[in-house]
């Protein structure tokens, strides 16, 4: 279990997260939603320690995450940032870098690391593209390559910051199905989302952030039945008879 205990963090003088306490479980896909600037990305960066906390702590399986070294943190939690570059390397080379925190100087990837990278590409369904340079791939496939890298990192939790950005609806659904698959394999998936129906239809739980605090964190059906979305976004999510969610603009 990954727990945030009264976490506050921000940039310089400005405090973005204000005493956030919540938990994320392994084997579950959690979507974090909220308006622009409410602290969704800040929450992920705070968990990882990229952004130092002004107060509170992050606990993973009973251990204070930020008392660990960067390498140790990277063995517990993988993170895919929002703005990803297209590095000049092949898919396999990038996925192999998921093994980076597991090695010490001078870092040389061994056959065992290569096998883990191949398996990760297999799980994500991009093994046949192993030799392809990343810049030759579509945005959706490149996103999958990043996810394979996070998978090769072999962590219990994977944090993703708006992974569906720039993807068409077909690739968005494909990506969400992949995240569900990873959650079903026991990973704790925590992803920042903007598309509410996508978040509600695929997630086990949804965390709603407003002004730096988690105002709701529950199963989609529970959030759907409350007024929190109306208060935060001014919209209402409806649940269809086929258990799918949609909302009107």
């Amino acid at each position: 279990m990954l727990e945030l205990k009264n976490v506050s963090a921000g940039y310089g003088e400005s405090s973005v997260l204000k005493g956030v306490s919540t938990t994320f479980e392994k084997g579950k896909l959690t979507s974090i939603i909220g308006k622009n600037g409410c602290g969704k990305s800040t929450l992920l960066k705070s968990i990882l320690g990229i952004l130092p906390l002004s107060s509170g702590k992050v606990v993973v399986d009973g251990n204070n995450l930020h008392s660990m070294s960067r390498n140790e943190i990277a063995k517990k939690v993988a993170y895919l940032a929002q703005g990803k570059s297209t590095p000049d390397m092949t898919v396999e080379q990038m996925v192999l870098h998921g093994r980076f925190p597991h090695l010490s100087y001078p870092r040389r990837y061994q056959e065992a690391d290569r096998e883990i990278a191949r398996k990760a590409m297999g799980v994500v369904g991009i093994y046949h593209l192993a030799d392809k340079p990343l810049f030759t791939l579509s945005g959706g496939t490149r996103q999958n390559a990043y996810i394979a890298m996070a998978l090769a990192q072999d962590t219990d939790y994977i944090l993703l910051d708006e992974p569906t950005t720039y993807l068409d609806i077909a690739h968005q659904r494909e990506l969400m199905n992949l995240l569900v698959k990873l959650a079903n394999r026991g990973k704790g998936i925590i992803t920042v989302m903007h598309d509410l129906p996508l978040a509600f239809n695929f997630s086990n739980t949804v965390a709603v952030i407003q002004n730096g605090t988690v105002v709701a964190h529950a199963e989609p059906s529970e959030i759907c039945g409350s007024s929190v979305l109306d208060e935060v976004f001014g919209v209402k999510i409806e649940r269809l008879p086929n258990d799918k969610f949609y909302y009107d603009y």
Partner: peptide
């Protein structure tokens, strides 16, 4: 001996930090 570090840096600052790099 630092060639992998140089490659990881090209993934972008935050992704590299996510892989444990200072």
């Amino acid at each position: 001996t630092l060639s992998n570090e140089l490659d990881v840096l090209t993934l972008g600052d935050e992704n590299a930090k996510g892989l444990g790099m200072n």
